[in-house]
């Protein structure tokens, strides 16, 4: 897929925001007043920036409200609902904590769960795509969720937990890459099944429909150089998981160290998400003799 910045920002920042809201909802850390205001502001801003960014790639964002109507069948629609419900529930919980020093823990707990469900719904927008074998796998959701709670754990100052989650995310990422690399070959779709001409012999594209490009090729048959991707994978896993985990384990826990860990983690996550989209291979590429 063409890795659109709006979609990368959407998935990374809304993930971070809802990951943070998850921890806040279960009462970690135990704060109130101004401190609480600051951290809740950050969580809501991150989630909302992500959601707003997602509307930038729409052809007609003015009717985005219509996306709430099809929750029965569409993961994108469900994601919208869960996001709104999570933000509202956590908003009520936050008001209690910030202004009344009162933690309505049931509401917080519900908010925490819905925040996670929101991240899961985001991941399902991609994981449901049978047409993109690399995404169509449980690792997509597992990675989205683990990264979200890892980021949240860094932001809530839980060095040990964060380091553990980051390492788990790193393992999941490696599994996702390694199994993902062969999944297209295993999915059973080939140029022969696409054209059903395999009964005659070996099929190859003789002429594409047009000499120029088109929406499908630009959007779905985006290709990254293998060498390029390999290098980026190394960088992203170092920055996303290894370096922040080490920083959190080795350096003394303070705000400055936390910020450094968060920034490296975010840089790595953005790179990993860029790859997630850039390396997605859609079966339609088969009709164009590519994948």
């Amino acid at each position: 897929m063409h890795p659109a910045p709006s979609i990368i920002i959407f998935t990374v920042f809304s993930g971070l925001g809802f990951g943070l809201l998850f921890w806040l909802g279960i009462g970690i850390p135990d704060i109130s007043g101004w401190n609480a205001l600051a951290i809740y502001f950050f969580a809501f801003a991150s989630a909302v920036i992500g959601l707003v960014a997602s509307t930038f790639h729409l052809g007609n964002p003015q009717r985005a409200w219509r996306a709430f109507t099809q929750w029965r069948s569409s993961w994108l629609s469900r994601e919208g609902w869960f996001a709104v419900i999570a933000l509202m529930t956590m908003g009520i919980y936050a008001l209690g904590i910030i202004f009344f020093e009162y933690a309505a823990s049931t509401i917080g707990f519900i908010g925490a769960i819905i925040s996670l469900v929101t991240v899961f719904a985001t991941s399902m927008i991609y994981a449901q795509m049978k047409t993109v074998p690399r995404w169509n796998h449980w690792t997509t959701s597992a990675l989205f969720l683990t990264l979200a709670v890892s980021g949240g754990a860094i932001l809530t100052g839980q060095s040990k937990t964060a380091a553990g989650l980051l390492l788990l995310a790193g393992i999941l990422q490696v599994v996702a890459w390694m199994t993902g690399d062969t999944r297209f070959g295993e999915c059973g779709s080939t140029i022969e099944t696409a054209t059903q001409l395999g009964g005659i012999g070996k099929v190859r594209l003789f002429e594409p429909p047009h000499t120029g490009s088109n929406y499908l090729l630009k959007e779905m048959v985006y290709t990254v150089g293998r060498k390029h991707a390999g290098k980026l994978r190394k960088w992203s896993i170092m920055l996303m998981c290894v370096v922040p985990a080490l920083i959190l384990l080795v350096l003394p826990a303070n705000l400055f160290v936390g910020i450094i860990a968060l920034l490296t983690h975010l840089a790595g996550t953005l790179a990993s998400r860029w790859l997630f989209f850039a390396e997605a291979e859609h079966v339609v590429g088969l009709y164009y003799g590519r994948r």
Partner: peptide, 11 residues
Amino acid sequence: IGCGLCAWACP
């Protein structure tokens, strides 16, 4: 709304 998801879902 032009989200493009349907084009992604079509093989």
